[in-house]
Amino acid sequence: MDKLMETFEKNDPVALGRVLKEVESQSEKGYEILKRTNKEKGKAHVIGITGPPGAGKSTLTSKLCKQLVNKGFTIGIICVDPTSPFTGGALLGDRIRMQELAKLPNVFIKSLATRGSLGGMAHSTADIVQLMDSFGKDIIIIETVGVGQVEFDVLEISDSVVLIGVPGLGDAIQTVKAGIMEIADIYVVNQADRPGADESVKDLKLMIKESERKDWKPSVLKTIATEQEGISELIDELERHKTHLITTKAWEKKRKERNYNRFVGRLDEIVHESVEGQFKTNPKTQSIIEQVKEGTMNPFSAANKIAEYIIKS
């Protein structure tokens, strides 16, 4: 363990790989590593990239990363793909869109499966961000699963959220709906060589103009990721947003909130695990559970009873 952390501090990518493996599987060793690396963090610019499946998140991430590396940044990429609700397996296929990054130095790509998380992220994402940050990555890009309307977890973890859409996903009403349309700091209409791109841009701009958000007016960019078009404009916008965060002190505020949320999240988990452990094994709760299953006791009274019982004991 000490030896592993020593090589980690010497910036050995093999050590980063091993460390992330422990954290991904949420092992005891993983938590020990997280405790030890807690101090050095908060420096990296965390960029969340989200949008519907097939919009071009992976391809855009790849092109973005390539240009950022050329500018001299070191990059960590976290790509999330869904876990099957039936088998628990997953096919993590984002990396194949990033083949051109394989030969670049200072790029570290980690694919994660959602493992039951519903917010568009894997459970261990924040932990992995922490380790990449502590390893010294300048920029960490998180690519969410293909999302629908309500996957907000990216907002909590990222400094800058980029929402990628494509032309033709609906009319202006879609942009007025609450949900994911509200959370982005930068809007991108990708595949902008397809018909309807200008209308999509217009709808988004109208939505932004009418929004209540006073501190930051998001911009709307057109990109064709496969042709590298619009990527440098996106980088400029990301830098502008970072400067905005720092000058308005939102940068620090976000980090404080993030620390607090991770603490609450972990506390939740520990409580949940111990409660579940108790009511599954405790014979006294078994009869209540049986009654609920049979329908002789209603779920609400049963839950209250068990909660009371566990909290007292």
Binding site: T83, S84, T87, G88, G89, A90, L91, L92, G93, R95, I96, Q99, S111, A113
Partner: peptide, 11 residues
Amino acid sequence: RDAGMEVVYLG
């Protein structure tokens, strides 16, 4: 994947 593994396909 259907056997419950997490598969990273590299091409």
